[in-house]
Nucleic acid binder design. Structure first.
Lengths: 200, 200
DNA sequence: GAATACATGTAATGCGTTACATGATTTA
DNA sequence: TAAATCATGTAACGCATTACATGTATTC
């Protein structure tokens, strides 16, 4: 089974969901660490069912299309539990922004700074969102956030990774942006590969 | 042009390289933020040449196979400079370990902790490597690390992102590992989804 | 009247990895 | 003598995205 299968099982282990529900979850909060389009979700659900890891029932609705609501099976839960404790390969990183940083010596510092500032703002916005959720969780879920057997704890743990990652990335963007912006005003190190100047 | 093309151009802008050289760079240091196998590199080099962004000359060697040494063209440098200041889309994250964290409430805490500890060790090892390079750079490249027009600065900037990222990830792994390990000894919250116990 | 939400699928395309293919030289 | 390094390619496969496809009901 591929990772997407386990991602779906992880959600179905918490509650019954339709393909459409899964799609929205993977666009939203869960999408921070795993996402998929509906074109991937529907076939994967079929595979999970074929393998006996999930099953569905039809729910008729008035005024809306009928939907297939999926639930995890005992076999699915077992497969998920086994996967959880298998060692993970550190996946290769591919970060286009760091790639740009590596060649930034060729760019006009002012223009380049804008690219990093934009990204910084995105990470800061995301961070603010996460911090709000964290506060909400700490106020409303209290006890269970310390219980490693609770889904609340698991969600909280994932969120903490999100918070740390966004903070770290934003910080790096700020650092490099400042460097680039200061260089722009510093006349001294003029001997430039950097082409245009068009300031104003 | 695809990102891999710019990755290659970014390296050719610093020095002339063969496909084989590129392959090794993308396995090593540069591989932290971008990597590619030789099966991708050779065709991409051909495309770059076709587009006029790079050109090669044959270097005959004794005792080794001949090689094609590639250099960047003026058009290549311009394309690279334009790409550098174009805004970047924040790519979707796919992190299998965070995905496991999200379902960790179903796992045996002790076994799960091992998975996170393993990963923590990997990030700490990488961090140690990077910190050594940082010290070396600060001692040997001094001046140029503050000159945003220097390739040294650009390499340093990328490295700093690597350092921050490894530290952040290792920290999160440590945090969750401790939580999981403490829970194992805490008898209190026994009411467990967690199956096995087989301690010793 | 147009766009968005609900709901579920298939097909085409793109990028990356693994495997296939070849061959000389150096090191263990 | 077996394995690793140098050196360059092509082919097959897998996963993910975009585009194609259809249809109702609600909201703007």
């Amino acid at each position: 089974m591929k990772t997407l299968g386990y991602a779906i099982l992880g959600l179905l282990a918490r509650e019954e969901l339709s393909g459409y529900d899964l799609k929205r979850l993977m666009e939203g909060r869960v999408g921070y660490f795993w996402q998929a389009k509906h074109s991937q979700i529907y076939p994967e659900l079929a595979l999970l069912e074929e393998g006996g890891f999930a099953r569905h029932r039809l729910v008729e609705q008035s005024g809306r299309p009928d939907k297939k609501v999926y639930g995890i099976t005992e076999a699915g839960r077992e497969a998920l539990q086994e996967w959880l404790v298998e060692p993970v390969e550190k996946p290769p990183t591919r970060d286009e922004l760091v790639l740009k940083a590596y060649s930034v010596w060729l760019a006009d510092p002012g223009k380049a700074a804008r690219v990093f500032r934009e990204r910084q703002a995105e990470h800061e916005a995301r961070l603010a969102e996460y911090l709000e959720i964290e506060v909400w969780m700490e106020n409303n879920l209290g006890e269970s956030l310390d219980d490693v057997g609770s889904p609340d704890f698991a969600g909280y743990a994932s969120l903490r990774r999100g918070i740390a990652a966004e903070r770290e990335y934003a910080g790096w963007c700020r650092w490099i942006s400042e460097k680039l912006e200061n260089a722009r005003s510093d006349g001294e190190l003029a001997e430039g590969q950097a082409s245009g100047a068009e300031e104003r």
